[in-house]
Amino acid sequence: MSDNNKVKGFFNMGEFGNYFVRVFQKSDPNQKSNYNLRMMHGINKISIVVFLLAIIFWIVKRFI
Rank of each mutant, 00 (worst) to 15 (best):
R62P: 05
G9P: 05
S27P: 13
F63E: 04
G42C: 12
F16S: 15
I48H: 04
I64Y: 15
F63K: 10
I56W: 08
E15K: 04
F24I: 10
N12A: 06
S33E: 11
I64V: 14
A54M: 00
N36R: 11
I55N: 02
F10W: 05
I59N: 03
F16L: 15
L52Q: 10
E15L: 05
V60S: 14
N34H: 10
N18L: 07
E15N: 09
S2N: 09
F16H: 08
V21N: 07
F63P: 01
F51D: 00
L52T: 11
R62S: 14
G42Y: 12
I59Y: 10
V60A: 15
V49L: 13
P29V: 01
I43S: 05
N4S: 09
I56H: 11
V60N: 13
N34Y: 07
L53Q: 03
G17Y: 00
F51L: 10
Q31V: 11
S2Y: 01
Q25S: 03
A54H: 00
V50T: 05
I55K: 03
V60H: 10
N18M: 07
I59D: 03
G17E: 05
V50H: 06
F10P: 00
Q25C: 08
I48G: 08
N30T: 07
S33A: 12
W58C: 04
K6C: 02
I43P: 02
G9K: 06
E15G: 09
S47L: 08
Y19L: 11
F16R: 05
F24C: 09
E15C: 08
L52H: 10
M13E: 01
G14H: 01
G9Y: 04
L37P: 14
S47Q: 07
I48P: 04
K6F: 13
G42M: 12
N4R: 12
F20E: 06
F16W: 07
N36T: 09
V21I: 03
N4I: 03
E15W: 04
P29Q: 01
R62D: 12
A54V: 01
N4H: 15
F57C: 14
K6W: 12
H41S: 13
M39R: 10
I43D: 02
Y19D: 13
V7Y: 13
L37A: 15
I55Y: 00
K32F: 14
N34L: 05
K8Y: 11
I48M: 04
N12M: 03
W58A: 07
I59P: 07
R38V: 08
V7K: 13
F51Q: 00
D3E: 09
I64E: 10
I46T: 08
Y35G: 01
I48D: 07
R38N: 15
K8M: 13
Q31D: 04
Q31P: 05
F10E: 00
K61Q: 09
M39D: 11
S33Q: 14
Q31Y: 14
V21G: 05
N44E: 12
H41M: 14
M40E: 15
